[in-house]
């Protein structure tokens, strides 16, 4: 049975009582969730894979809480976000390493600083990564969702369960903070 054209919501309906169908949901979203958790945490690949497993088990458990008027990917990201927050809170350790790819780091600042990837030195990219890492958690998560996960503001609102005005403010301030940090580090327009 080819389920590639089946919608997420249809798969969720089929999965309710039959986990086999849930496999297709996992296949569709596991990479995105893995990279999101990786970008937002300091964990090793193995730890992030364990988290991905737990996230999908939580998604399976809460499937009756979903409303088809919501965007399905936002619901998965919300569960992933909450799971990550719980984990970081339990371990009580802030990320001290950066798992952003060079291009990802540049993507975040591209709208603020006119930095062409081809001309960006490895030293500059390292400074950008440090600047992103030093941002407070709530600013960083909004920037990652917006520029790396390509989420619209409305989706970020649902993922973080924060009002639209708050998300827009976090985004604007986060970018300003990042720009100031980069200017201090000697990276200019």
């Amino acid at each position: 049975m080819d389920l590639s054209q089946t919608t997420d919501w249809e798969l969720i309906r089929l999965s309710n009582g039959n986990p086999k169908y849930f496999k297709h949901i996992v296949e569709r979203y596991q990479n995105r969730i893995f990279h999101y958790l990786k970008r937002m945490s300091y964990y090793s690949n193995e730890d992030v894979e364990d988290m991905v497993q737990e996230v999908f088990i939580k998604v399976y458990r809460s499937m009756n809480d979903f409303e088809s008027t919501d965007k399905f990917s936002s619901l998965i990201y919300r569960i992933a976000h909450n799971h990550l927050v719980d984990n970081i809170r339990k371990s009580n350790v802030r990320p001290n390493q950066n798992y952003l790819e060079d291009e990802e780091a540049v993507n975040i600042i591209r709208s603020e600083i006119n930095l062409e990837m081809d001309f960006a030195s490895s030293e500059a990219i390292e400074k950008i990564k440090i600047a992103i890492l030093q941002l407070p958690e709530n600013y960083r998560e909004v920037l990652v969702l917006k520029f790396l996960e390509d989420k619209r503001i409305e989706e970020i609102v649902d993922i973080l369960r924060k009002p639209q005005g708050t998300v827009a403010t976090l985004l604007r301030r986060g970018r300003e903070m990042l720009k100031n940090e980069l200017l201090k580090a000697g990276i200019k327009n």
Binding site: F22, E27, Q30
Partner: peptide, 15 residues
């Protein structure tokens, strides 16, 4: 990353 779908479904069934 490796494909986790089988592990996740197995885990759901086992637990």
């Amino acid at each position: 990353m490796k494909d986790l779908s089988d592990d996740i479904i197995k885990s759901i069934e086992e637990r």
